[in-house]
Nucleic acid binder design. Sequence first.
DNA 1: GTCTATAGCTAGATAGAC
DNA 2: GTCTATCTAGCTATAGAC
Lengths: 194, 194
Amino acid sequence: MADISPDARAEIADAVRDALAEHGYERLTTAKIAEHYAKSEAGLYYYYDTKDEMIAAFLEHTAGQLGEELAAIDGGPEQQLRAACDHLFLSPDDEDAGVHVAIMELLSHAPHNETLREPLLGLESATLELFAGIVRQGVDSGVFRDVDPRASAAFLLAAADGSTGFHVALEMDVGADIERGWSGYIDSLLADDA
Amino acid sequence: MADISPDARAEIADAVRDALAEHGYERLTTAKIAEHYAKSEAGLYYYYDTKDEMIAAFLEHTAGQLGEELAAIDGGPEQQLRAACDHLFLSPDDEDAGVHVAIMELLSHAPHNETLREPLLGLESATLELFAGIVRQGVDSGVFRDVDPRASAAFLLAAADGSTGFHVALEMDVGADIERGWSGYIDSLLADDA
DNA sequence: GTCTATAGCTAGATAGAC
DNA sequence: GTCTATCTAGCTATAGAC
């Protein structure tokens, strides 16, 4: 678990992601990870000591990717915030739906699983900071009202994470409602210099 | 699983709730449920055929309780909505924190677990309807702006569910931000007849 | 209805050859 | 570094006595 080549890291992270998206964490076995891996099940244990360390590596990999994707969004604060929400509020048939549901499942294990806690904290904190940065820019530039950037960001992130439960995982028919919800919330952040 | 006395139902639902709050679903075993049950592990199987049916019974029990609690809130629409949010946005040291995290975990299993899907849908739908009803009253009475009640309710419920992940389960230090977030959102719903 | 005991299975992790 | 084979623990569900 000390020095792993970036290639091996990425290959295993991808295998974990695919297996997680397909089966969820509860039904995830090292055999299923290996099905999405070019080598064998025992080969996974050459690089990692436990299954949870493989998952932690997947989370770190994902945090990096998500950070890049969100940071790559350009435009004014309002457009950036809308694009970031579009990126995080998924629908059940989105290709990343399974991954988001699995991350939600992993989050629910944080109280009982020390190995996963830190990488999960890294993932959520980074996302929160990116959202807060966008809102802060909007407030500073006068596009948004004088709201608390961290509060607005935390509220939006919570809504995105929560919609993963009843909208994505449960497939409750609330897609239009959810979108109207976050979109209307962003409307309410706009400064009214009418 | 046909005719179970209300007493037996409630006793087992309570045992499941306590065990879930303590261990989460992944580490929940029928032996651990039995530790919170006055009778034996095999006794659980006299009433239910599988572990998941015990959990489904717990969810149905919980939906009833939550419905009663939310319906018991009185006051005007604004006060009712604030009280309902106070009830659903928990902090990590709340006594129901473990239960909410476990329900979040169960939600993440909805795509892979047919037994849990229906009771989870019942729980989330009922909560959504209660929130939407409060917002609708507020709009009709002119306390709130002319927002879409279901959209606002879905957005708030999503935020509450999502805060269970990073605030309650992960214990991210965002308690004040989250509260400012939902409170500010309710502020933004108020009609401005200034 | 409730118990003890256990069958039967599955999964995480390792041994040891190559 | 990678493989096949397997050990071992722990869990769900049931059998059968009372």
